[in-house]
């Protein structure tokens, strides 16, 4: 794995729009003169990620390369199901009855998750709980639009969850961009970046729709079809390529578990 740490210099002029842009009334705006915008962008090298000498407690100096030495480089592996079908069925039953959601709200849809804890909807009776740490969670609800910055964190969280793990895309933003379909900063197809088991459509979906979506997920789990984690491991390179295509400052290991 190689990480670019030299600062990249991008120099203008840089004009994105070629056709004349229209203002709100549909009148053509004055054409952009070349050179109208120029700037020098320096991507700061991250000091804590650079190769450096470290002095250990015993006085010995040694060199560390954080991304390589502090993280394990092994990628994800496909984990087989239990050998006996009856055992796997038991596990699947338990998995479907004990869904622990990672408490990470990525977009406006997160506001619809909170009512599920209240007396009116009470998701606990379906075995659904919220967990504050990805280690213990096994369902990641992407609640709405994902900006590129959040996507980076979402990937890290997803990779820290333990196999088997599930992803539910909440709201039309995760499906085709929703009302952020022309935004400069949000992705439009969640399943290009993470393996999604269930989509819940709506902007935003009501809590009832969420409960229905969780029931569908449970059916998938019971049937042994929710194998997103293994799918992610199988097509790891494809997912990584998609992710890196839009995350430009990739400053983390390729697989962060």
């Amino acid at each position: 794995m190689k990480v670019e740490l030299e600062s990249r210099i991008v120099e203008g002029p840089e004009v994105v729009g070629v056709e004349p842009a229209l203002d709100l009334q549909g009148k053509a705006l004055p054409a952009v003169q070349p050179g109208a915008y120029s700037r020098t962008v320096t991507l700061m090298p991250r000091a804590e990620l650079e190769r450096r000498m470290v002095k250990g407690p015993d006085g010995v100096e040694f060199e560390v390369e954080p991304l390589r030495d502090y993280y394990c480089e092994a990628g994800p592996t496909v984990m087989p199901a239990a050998y006996l079908k009856i055992v796997e069925d038991l596990f699947n039953w338990a998995r479907s009855r004990s869904i622990w959601i990672l408490g990470f709200g990525t977009g406006c849809g997160a506001i619809e998750m909170r009512p599920l804890m209240t007396p009116r909807f009470d998701a606990y009776r379906f075995g659904i709980q919220w967990r504050p740490t990805p280690r213990q969670a096994n369902l990641f609800v992407i609640s709405g639009y994902l900006s590129v910055k959040t996507l980076k964190r979402a990937i890290r969280c997803y990779e820290q969850m333990q196999n088997p793990k599930y992803v539910v895309g909440l709201g039309s933003c995760t499906i085709n961009g929703g009302m952020y379909w022309d935004s400069y900063n949000t992705i439009k197809r969640l399943d290009d970046y993470l393996p999604v088991d269930v989509y819940i459509a709506g902007c935003m979906p009501r809590p009832e729709a969420l409960l229905q979506g969780f029931e569908d997920l449970k059916k998938l789990i019971r049937a042994g079809k929710a194998e997103g984690a293994n799918q992610y491991a199988e097509r790891f390179d494809w997912y990584k390529a998609n992710q890196k295509q839009i995350i430009h400052d990739w400053d983390m290991p390729d697989y962060n578990w």
């Binding site: 962008v41 910055k149 900063n185 992705i187 197809r189 400052d249």
Partner: peptide, 29 residues
Amino acid sequence: FILEGWTGMPPYRRDFDTKRFSEENYNHR
């Protein structure tokens, strides 16, 4: 600040075409 690793034209300038940028950069369903 929010845009990590952004190198192009700043997106709030009005001559920045967000629709076009989005179509070019993000996969479309």
